[in-house]
Design a protein around this nucleic acid. Structure first.
Lengths: 208, 208, 208, 208
DNA sequence: TATGAATGAGGGTTCATTCAT
DNA sequence: CATGAATGAACCCTCATTCAT
């Protein structure tokens, strides 16, 4: 028999859930610790037992995003889509599907924090970078799997970074306009670019 | 003889300068009104005489960014670079040149505010959008000037949005990594894409 | 031909009107000078030219209430009611008629100020007292006119003070309950008392 | 052994004591929270931990006045005076004795608040009314105990309301004049009225 | 370990008033 | 005399955090 989940774990989860949600909805600075406490149903002393500061809680939230990257973000894409190139656009479509019903409110939780705390919280910046690296890592893996369907001369790492650029830059404009137009436009240009790359590689292969 | 600049204008400018700088350096929520007052050398009553709230001051800052878009951002690019396609990359290089000495701290002042206040301040969102629209407007103009050097089938508005996407998404990653790598990579992919478009249009033209 | 009313008089009137209304509606401390300025359509400099302070404005408002006592409060009663005893109850009914449509909001402007500023503004207290004295003066005059319809032993000054007591005490309870019950009850007891006095005096006269 | 009084209760009491005293001395609007904090020796966070706003503190003060009505106001009267009719005048004399040494400064704390906040604070009005109802309740009880010493036809509730009217209306005039004259006059007229009622009832009883 | 009161610096804003134009 | 920006103390309240129980 498994031991009962200790209540501290439960408390820890409730805090992390509430903090992650509120940081996403309101931003880090606009979220008061007291709001987190209320939403998590926890006392200040309990929170400060588990996390020595609001900043430490932010770090924990970002660690959890790292853990959730695969199960929440990447696994659904990989499960639904087999072709590595298609997976890139399935990933971009997944964000669209998440945020369209919200009229593109909220935005990327990592991207939001990147712009809000990267300068003020030096100890947090690496955790953001870790999330971006993980995200790009999946894209790089897919691009590697695409093998010679893409030109040999293509800088696959640069393209992976660009996919993240398209997601973050597109989502930023979508939030500002409450519309999908700029996001869709950016994704379409990326599609067009990759199609040109695929065509060139195909030509190279047939000539090769 | 022109009348002396009224002192109120001076006060207004000092407030706007300080607010714009601090919002850029620290973010909107992390900047206290008292800090703005101290840096501007102004009393609370004076500020609230000119701007009824911190939010109104934010709106004024964003209006000013709209006014500064041409003289500060676009005019230098257009003065230094004649070719419309080259202007796009000169613009992207200008941001690189601005932020490289800062190790990519600060980031885009509009983009930062977009992610920080777009949801919480509905009245501010249109002002952010206005800045993005103005920015893309210049790129659209340049793309139009490129005429048939670009394929007729190209969605020039979509490409303009993508240029902004590359700038914002690239800058976000640059801030997170304190490095130019992802920014340069994204710009390089855009360059590669546009080169492919130019090549295709050139082929179309010669085939006539 | 009369000279045109100087604009300063107009300004003065607009300020007094606004101040009197706002002090009545919101109280003295709860009314900001800026609100008075806005409602009067006047600039701070203009107000402070005419009245050196908010307290001086309050004094002017109370002076004006003294001037308005006859035309606004007493003249209508005396015009509508001839019998001196009836005038007392007509006066009390006039307040009821004024405040019933407001569910007894606002209350007596003098009484409100009496309780709010009597202690903190020693220079204002005599002006409040002057209003009360004027008010009681009319009641005393009527009681004198009632002659031997009232007992010779009756302290007419004390009864006049009591009429004011009934008005103020009754109105206070009416405001607290948003109902006429306590006001009507107090007036009815006064009516009953005066009826007993009239009956006794009548007996004395017939025996006399 | 009883547990020591928890310090929270102590803090709460110090806040309530200071707030009640200052609201009484200066009025609600003229009393700053910072003054309450200083006088209570308490930090802002402590106050707002116990009371979510200045208005909530006002409500608590009025609740406490309700609790204190019996021990502070009514019990001394009932202890010192047995006869129910005499108790009414002992109560009115108690107020006189309290305020005469102050030259009738301060006034009734409930009455002051009634006029200052009844309109602006709808949630407070019922608490004021509750105090008035409690006060009148004692007078009603005494009038009931007077039985057939008073005329059967007398509206005892109306007379009770009138007693409060006399206290509040009399105290208002006493504050304005810094003299007992109008207060004493009003009480004397009430005495005269009740004597007439007692005489009439006595006559009715003897005629039986 | 859980609780929630206590801490005190700082939040954004309004106040009555003055003064330069 | 009108204007409205400037003044700076004070307003009510919230912040992240600590500590006694």
């Amino acid at each position: 028999m498994a031991p009962p989940v200790p209540s501290s774990t439960d408390t820890r989860s409730r805090i992390l859930d509430a903090a992650a949600r509120l940081f996403h909805e309101q931003g880090f600075n606009a979220t008061g610790v007291s709001t987190i406490l209320r939403e998590a149903g926890v006392n200040p002393g309990s929170l400060y037992n588990l996390y020595p500061s609001k900043d430490a809680l932010l770090a924990a939230v970002l660690e959890r995003y790292t853990q959730l990257l695969h199960p929440v973000v990447m696994a659904p894409v990989e499960a639904a889509t087999a072709d590595p190139i298609d997976r890139i656009f399935a990933l971009l479509k997944q964000y669209r599907d998440w945020f369209l019903p919200l009229e593109f409110r909220l935005g990327c939780p990592i991207g939001n924090l990147a712009l809000e705390v990267a300068d003020s919280h030096p100890e947090i910046r690496p955790l953001i970078q870790q999330n971006f690296d993980g995200w790009c890592g999946y894209v790089k893996k897919w691009l590697a799997e695409a093998g010679d369907r893409l030109p040999a001369s293509l800088d696959r790492d640069a393209l992976a970074a660009t996919v993240l650029t398209v997601m973050e830059g597109g989502l930023m404009q979508a939030r500002s306009s409450r519309s999908a137009v700029a996001y869709d436009a950016s994704v379409a240009q990326l599609r067009s670019y990759i199609d040109l790359l695929l065509a060139r590689a195909s030509g190279e292969r047939s000539r090769g």
